[in-house]
Design a protein around this nucleic acid. Structure first.
Length: 516
RNA sequence: GGCGCUUUCGUCUAGCGGCUAGGACACAUGCCUCUCACGCAUGUAACACGGGUUCGAUUCCCGUAGGCGCUACCA
């Protein structure tokens, strides 16, 4: 095979937010490049001036920065194969269009969009190809003089690829092995439009991949039908010997129902489909992002990687570096994968579990601040250590942990009803007195003394501990009691006990299940 | 409609002629326990259908059906 350095590219169109499927495509390209000590190129395919959306390019770059996917060259990264924005490569494309024209492998067509539309309405399954081009207005049916005159008169035209019929075109695909399509079913694709002096995707793509010395094209399955066209283009230019290898990835599908994953599904089922929050400049609509929803970038990448690929064993939790080692494009699945966002939540849980208490605490501090809490770091770290296993997202920590920082003002009704007995005020007073007498308020000492006190007096452990919990937490949840009281400290613990006794654990609140 | 791709538990998937069809998420149950979780254990659950090939098909081939994609002067 070739000795060329591996070079792959991710080439989005700046038409809006980066779709999560695009993120996965980029990830696979990244893994492939890293694994082969190759380069990953970031190219912007903005050949459709009508669909350009301001801010989209910046959004895409920021997304990858957050995710931790690094490019070696391209828009905003520099490199020796630029420019990397297709709208800045007009002259290059013009030159190659000319080459095809001169070689008789492409021709100029003057049929207006309206005329074509009429044709399509008139003839079922109309296709601009070998069977119909002789009856259309193009440089094959018009004389050289007529063509020149039309152009001189400012008539708009397009350049079409002249596809020879009845030829079996073989596309070798790394995931699907060989795909064969007969050239007769391909139409004479528009390669270039005079209106904006820009090529269409197909031409620009082939020219750029060739000039940028791309060795492997890893892209979504939606491109499979046009792969034969691309092969034909490489051939027309005489570049077949350096034509990249293709790998067409299966698509990401709706979690339920049918069809490919769309932004609507996210809104409908409550999960993001974009890496970052996206503010649509045209509609003003705001779409949620994985970052803002509290996902860890490593978890998102890990989750995405396994949607359509697996390392061949049971390992599911993998760092980016591990994935680089394990990735194998031949192990990609062929069929589309329903987007299992519930599993994505599980990945986030696993990554929080895996992350050090210190790091999670750092993420928790801003959330505490939002609630007006400024706590010493060591306390936050301890709380996180006690509680992080219970959540899927760092932000969920607040609801579960707030009692560590704020004394309860109300007590959960159901728990009060169940755990606050007739004699609880009396018992809690006694407990407060007992704790008051302690010089050593450590977890171990408290536990030893209190448990002995319970045993000596023949109390019921559950009654005491549950009332104790209700007094300190205001609810029937949380870690072991002495973890709580030790962290709260002697004064705060006793204060909360006294308050609970005074109030008799009133007022109460109910957990409204309806509100999320 | 045409062309192409595709088809294993509800979901993501392992399997590459002979297996009690494995794992993970979700779900259920149990254990742990002062509560709620975490965790751990166990369980429910799949080879789309019909023909071949073969001693033997989840696996190979051909159909059918379903799904997905493409079918633009969009990518």
């Amino acid at each position: 095979m070739t000795e060329r350095k591996v070079r792959v590219r991710f080439a989005p169109s700046p038409t809006g937010a980066l779709h999560i499927g695009g993120v996965r495509t980029a990830l696979y390209n990244y893994l492939f490049a890293r694994q082969h000590n190759g380069d990953l190129v970031f190219r912007i395919e903005d050949t459709d001036s009508n669909r350009f959306v301001p801010g989209a390019e910046e959004y895409i770059i920021e997304s990858f920065k957050w995710l931790g996917i690094k490019f070696d060259e391209g828009v905003s990264f520099g490199g020796n194969y630029g420019p990397y924005r297709q709208s800045e490569r007009r002259d290059i494309y013009k030159k190659y269009v000319q080459i095809l024209l001169e070689a008789g492998k492409a021709y100029i067509a003057f049929d207006t969009p309206a005329e074509l539309e009429a044709k399509r309405a008139e003839i079922a399954n109309f296709q601009y190809d070998a069977s119909t081009r002789t009856s259309m207005r193009n440089s094959l049916t018009l004389s050289k003089e007529e063509v020149d005159k039309l152009i001189a008169d400012g008539e708009q035209y397009v350049v079409r690829f002249k596809i020879e019929p009845n030829e079996d075109v073989h596309v070798h695909d790394l995931i699907r092995s060989e795909v064969v399509i007969n050239s007769s079913i391909l139409d004479d694709k528009v390669l270039y439009k005079s209106v904006d002096e820009l090529p269409t995707y197909h031409l620009a793509n082939i020219v750029d991949d060739h000039l940028m010395e791309i060795t492997h094209v890893i892209r979504g399955e939606e491109w499979l039908p046009s792969a034969p066209l691309h092969v034909l283009l490489y051939r027309a230019f005489g570049w077949e010997d350096t034509m990249p290898e293709f790998a067409h990835l299966p698509l990401l599908l709706k979690p339920d129902g049918k069809g490919k994953l769309s932004k609507r599904d996210g809104d409908r089922l409550g999960f993001p489909v974009f890496p970052l929050e996206w503010h649509d400049p045209k509609t003003g609509e705001v779409s949620s992002g994985y970052r803002e929803s509290g996902y860890l970038p490593e978890a998102v990448l890990n989750f995405l990687a396994l949607l359509g690929w697996n390392p061949g064993n049971d390992q599911e939790i993998m760092s980016l570096d591990e994935m680089v080692q394990l990735f194998d494009v031949h192990r990609c699945s062929k069929a589309g994968a329903k987007f299992d966002y519930v599993k994505g939540i599980w990945f986030n849980h696993e990554y929080i579990l895996k992350m050090s208490d210190e790091k999670v605490a750092q993420l928790f501090v801003p959330i505490l601040k939002e609630h007006g809490i400024e706590a010493p770091m060591d306390k936050v770290v301890t709380v996180v250590g006690l509680m992080k296993g219970r959540v899927n997202f760092v932000k969920e920590l607040w609801e579960l942990c707030k009692f560590f920082f704020v004394a309860p003002l109300e007590y959960e009704e159901k728990t009060r009803k169940k755990r606050w007995k007739e004699d609880s005020p009396e018992m809690m007073s006694k407990l407060a007195d007992l704790l008051e007498s302690l010089d050593d308020f450590s977890l171990e000492n408290q536990e030893r003394v209190v448990m002995k006190w319970i045993e000596d007096n023949g109390y019921h452990t559950g009654n005491i501990m549950n009332a104790f919990r209700l007094a300190l937490v205001g609810d029937g949840i949380g870690p072991h009691m002495f973890d709580i009281s030790a962290l709260l400290g002697k004064d705060e613990t006793i204060s909360r006990l006294h308050k609970a006794v005074e109030r008799d654990c009133f007022p109460v609140f109910t957990k409204d299940k309806a509100q999320k």
